[in-house]
Amino acid sequence: MARPSVAEERRQQIIDAAIRTIGTHGITGATLDRIAEEAGMSRGHVRHFVGNRDELLVETARRFYFDGPDEDSILPSGTNSVAGAIDFLFGDEFTEPGNANAVVFGLIEASRTNPAIAQILVRAYSGVETKLGELIAEEHPAVSDLERKQAAYAIVSMALHNVFMNDIEQSDDRTDAARDAALALWGALARSSEGA
């Protein structure tokens, strides 16, 4: 296997530093100087390898949300059931407050003024709805398109609300209740399709 180029290694080093800096200092505190310091490079090197701050933030968002260029969802690759998607969306990796959530909130703030970041976030989160809809259709083909879209939207909304609240006040009980609500919605939809 070919070794990545030095330029690509430096770009990844800078993007990793940007993610850590946003997680620590927020989006407004993620200056090129702070990111350069975190990366152990000069500001000039950062600009050489990734361009200006806006270009760096766009590439940071892309790599934060997607491992590969063909991905369209934040669900882990290999998620092949509605239950698996719910397990992820209400599991520790997704719901734990911390630096990853701080990065998400920072990128949401940046998306208000940077359309390229907004497109990445829309792709990431609407991709979850699309993937959930596909999984629902595979598991229960009798579910109507409207019901499938509504259920996918509701499950993603519950998951994001739970993450938002957990970042303010962590509560395993709230997460359990949100997960139970998502499973109840899924169960009711599955039962109604079986009776159709």
Rank of each mutant, 00 (worst) to 15 (best):
V128M: 01
T175V: 03
P115G: 09
D173M: 12
R179C: 14
D176H: 13
E138C: 06
N80L: 09
G127M: 00
K149L: 12
A142M: 06
S126W: 04
S81H: 06
I86E: 03
P69R: 14
A102C: 05
R174Q: 14
S73G: 08
N114A: 04
K131D: 05
V156Q: 04
D70R: 13
E169W: 11
D172V: 14
G84M: 02
T95Y: 00
I117K: 06
G68L: 13
F88P: 03
S73A: 07
A83H: 12
E71W: 07
M158I: 08
S157V: 01
I108N: 06
T79S: 08
S111T: 09
A137R: 14
D87N: 10
V104T: 11
N99E: 14
G106Q: 04
T130N: 03
Q150D: 12
V128G: 00
L121Y: 01
A181R: 04
G133E: 01
D87A: 15
N114Q: 15
V103L: 02
A178P: 00
L132Q: 02
A137H: 11
N99I: 08
V156E: 04
T130H: 06
A152K: 00
D67W: 12
A85P: 02
S157M: 08
D70I: 03
T175N: 12
A124Y: 00
H161F: 14
A116Y: 06
D67K: 15
D145H: 12
D72K: 09
F94P: 00
F105H: 10
E134V: 09
A85K: 00
A184W: 08
F66L: 06
S171L: 03
E109D: 13
E96R: 15
P97M: 02
R123Y: 01
E134M: 11
N99K: 15
S73E: 06
V104C: 09
R112S: 10
E134G: 08
E139D: 12
A159D: 07
I136G: 01
I108A: 13
N166D: 06
D176L: 09
I168Y: 10
A85Y: 04
E96Y: 09
P69Q: 14
A83E: 15
D145R: 13
S111I: 06
Q119P: 05
T113R: 15
G68A: 15
I168L: 15
I108Q: 11
A181V: 04
P141S: 12
A102F: 07
V122K: 14
R123M: 06
A151S: 14
E93I: 05
T79E: 07
A110P: 05
I155D: 01
V82L: 10
L121H: 04
A181D: 08
L183A: 08
F88R: 02
V82S: 04
A102E: 11
S81E: 08
A83G: 09
V104P: 02
A100W: 08
A152W: 00
H140E: 11
A182V: 05
S171W: 05
F66E: 05
A124D: 03
I120C: 10
I86P: 02
D173V: 15
Y125M: 03
E129F: 00
L135C: 04
I168D: 06
E93L: 09
S126Y: 06
R123Q: 13
E139G: 14
D180Y: 07
H161I: 03
G91T: 02
A137K: 12
A152T: 01
A83S: 15
